[in-house]
Design a protein around this nucleic acid. Structure first.
Lengths: 234, 234, 234, 234
DNA sequence: TATGAATGAGTGTTCATTCAT
DNA sequence: GATGAATGAACACTCATTCAT
């Protein structure tokens, strides 16, 4: 008679495991549905918890999104870092950074989109850990450019932070169509072309004026020498 | 007996005027509140109409946003176009485009943000008039690069569309902090630096081939001189 | 330059024609969409008038529905009437009425449904012309039963108005599945069966009274015979 | 500073109690206002819950109506069933069914009207539990007729399902005026009359021909007997 | 600590009807 | 008489978040 609904077996897991479960399922739901359409109840169900439990670990839905994206971002950074410093040569490193960024985007377009449209535009962005992570992530470019300038490989008049904007701005701009599901992206070729144009635009050479004057003078001298030597031959 | 609410005095205006009024007030509300928080009822009130009237001209809130942004974009394009073709010289034109884009963003940061986060990321973006307008808007860079390549001013190995991504990507990336209200943006200086780095990265120098020919000639001449001097020594 | 929108050619038609046009298109829209979903603007467009014009002839949407249904009903009645009185014999007439009612329903299921769900249930029904029309329409059954009683064809103890309820109630009840689009309705067979059961249920047999009289007489005669035989016995 | 509205004291009840409360108040509001005019917010308020809570248990307003009517219907059926099988005799059972149906209608005219106009006409009716309930409810008539035919009480040429349509159709048709609040309904008398006409219409009798011949022969015999006895008397 | 029932704010959209032109 | 622009009321439904148990 007293057929009480069986109380769901309470699974007491370590908090870290709970958090991990929730974040895994949140990532799945956010990437599938987008931020607005993602339901806390869906996330909870997938994670095997009830709605309310999510709020023990995350202040609200937005923080959950933030944490998911920060988590993802952090892994990307760590993964890149450990390989980046093994790469030698300025061109190679630029190419590596561009390629890696493209790859990260192509692998997780939905998360990328969320990061761009939901978080980066947020007035609170500067206070997010994501901001710090991004600084770390993009600092390599600034360092790289500084070093290349120092050793005379790059022109000394380029702004390292502008190069950073150019690199990431170009990469991101190149992926918008892909992010909207408008076809594929050949990340190898794109990385090549972006690295190429960036590197060539930054590499130091004797200034055009100098080299032309030099060439003219050399040619004139040579001609005279030739004439001289010709006269002598005659 | 029953105090009927007095029907608002009907104000009959030409459709164009109504549409213009609504768009003006929609622009104001959208830029102040953002898309989600903007209320149709606010927009209507400001425009001096009732809510329902908006739906005579706009299918829904989203279309209203689209139209507002397209309208703004179109004006920017027209305004730019008429001045752009008066500018002479590749560097100047690049600088003009960069400057104008920066200026547009700085003048309407809120609309820019809406365009970036609400429309550009929309899967329907490709079907919007905004997409067409943007193509028109950015095509100039492609043309400019092509022409500069044709006359030998730019290297022939650069991809015009990549330059376009680089220009707009760099500009937009440079403005994110500003768009989040994190300080001002010196558009003059920024435009200078972006134009500089872009131009210098693209401009042709005497090709390596030329340099090699020159080197060959110098070497030959030197040899001859050496022979001459050898003759003198003799 | 001053390209004014061409004002729609005003078609001044006699009011009757207008009303007829509107009712034709209203009937089409109501039967297609149902009452709630039918739009005045659709009706107006089909009729080649503007929304407001409808209100010159009909007080509101509901009245328009009423008029459409009344119009339809009236035609049915007239059509039936002119054929009904040519039919001879009680059974034939009952069968005719049943058949005709079924036929009317099958021909216009959507209108029937509207009449049943929108109008017949309306507290104002009694004030509608439809009510009067329905009285006229169904009166025949009452008359028919009365006459059949008078001539001794039907039992004298049946209530003509109950027979009316029985006839129409049975017909309508038999058509609900069809009205919900759940298959076809064989109106010929259905009419036969309904007429059969009704007629047989009403037709007079020697009344119980007659039988009793007869029984009395038999009993009396028997008694007398008994007496006779008793006389014989005596 | 900002005076936050105090959150309503949470009252945790078992789901069944909540559902019952909501259905009670929904029934009250639906019967008072009709379906369209009934407000979810009214129903919620009466039930002592907030609007949203209703949607924990009912998918939408329509489902709530369905459940209210089904619930009512189910009770009617159960109540009838337990008494019906105690009734003996075909005539009595018909009379009971008619009476009970009339009584149910008279007791809840508003719910009846909703069932007729909102649900029975719904294209989804066949998928509703109400449909099943109705089948159960009306099946008795079919069984009853079959049995009466089997034992020779009813004519063998009547269609049991047609009788069902006739019974319910007649009852419902007889109540329309009452359902529109046009006066009272004497359910006792009405039940008598409907049962009478139905029963008499169905009951088997010696065919007309047979009975007449029989009567003639009886009468002739009687006359002869009388003549005979009269001769004796004389 | 986990549960999950209950909260309740919040708004875009439709369309019959009106009435100035 | 016809037009059709403008009115404006009206409301079901969602779901993040809370908190009593």
């Amino acid at each position: 008679m007293a057929e009480k609904k069986v109380r769901k077996r309470v699974n007491r897991l370590p908090a870290e495991q709970r958090i991990a479960d929730i974040m895994v399922s949140a990532r799945a739901v956010f990437t599938t549905k987008g931020y607005e359409s993602a339901l806390i109840s869906d996330i909870a169900e997938r994670a095997g918890v009830v709605d309310g439990s999510i709020y023990r670990f995350f202040a609200n839905k937005r923080e959950l999104l933030m944490r998911v994206i920060e988590d993802w971002y952090e892994k990307i950074i760590l993964e890149e870092e450990e390989r980046y410093y093994a790469v030698r040569g300025t061109w190679n490193r630029i190419r590596f950074i561009v390629f890696h960024h493209l790859q990260a985007i192509v692998r997780e377009p939905a998360l990328t989109k969320l990061a761009f449209t939901e978080l980066r535009a947020d007035p609170q962005y500067r206070q997010m850990r994501l901001y710090k992570l991004n600084q770390t992530y993009t600092r390599k470019v600034v360092e790289l450019v500084r070093e290349a300038i120092d050793v005379g490989e790059f022109r000394s008049d380029v702004s390292p932070s502008l190069v950073r904007s150019m690199l990431y701005g170009c990469v991101e701009h190149s992926t918008w169509a892909f992010l909207r599901n408008e076809g594929n992206l050949d990340i190898d070729q794109t990385a090549d072309r972006i690295a190429e144009i960036l590197y060539n635009g930054l590499v130091a050479r004797h200034s055009e004026g100098d080299i032309l004057v030099l060439a003219d003078r050399l040619e004139a001298a040579t001609t005279r020498l030739e004439r001289l030597s010709g006269a002598n031959d005659a």
